[in-house]
């Protein structure tokens, strides 16, 4: 089997593709949670808390999307660099922020 033109051997485990799809799945999961968060916020009265919750959810969702998008772009390289700790921390903190917002809306 010959490698592609840039001289790198083909990765038979398709690791970058699998990682890209894992980011896609995670983005989908994040979208579902964001939709639930917006539903939670618009069920209540239109108070500043609920309106800012909708705005914050939109921001968090976009930030998550941006992280995933950058990572997917990085994975297109022949030898993808490792995940930056910043991106990992970001993805986790967006999740924690969604949970924190849910607590604020619940109580």
């Amino acid at each position: 089997m010959t490698g592609p033109a840039d001289g790198t051997a083909r990765d038979p485990g398709l690791q970058p593709e699998r990682t890209r799809l894992a980011w896609r799945r995670t983005t989908l999961a994040c979208t579902v949670v964001a939709a639930l968060a917006v539903r939670q916020a618009v069920r209540g009265p239109a108070t500043p808390l609920h309106l800012s919750a909708v705005a914050l959810t939109a921001l968090l969702w976009l930030a998550f999307l941006r992280t995933a998008h950058h990572r997917i772009a990085d994975l297109a390289a022949p030898r993808p660099p490792g995940l930056a700790p910043r991106s990992a921390l970001g993805a986790a903190l967006f999740t924690v922020a969604l949970a924190g917002m849910a607590v604020a809306l619940l109580v």
Binding site: T26, A29, C30, V32, V33, L36, A37, R39, Q40, A92, T95, L98, A99, A102
Partner: peptide
Amino acid sequence: ALALVGGGFA
């Protein structure tokens, strides 16, 4: 983690 948070909303 996202599934658990979504479960909390649900």
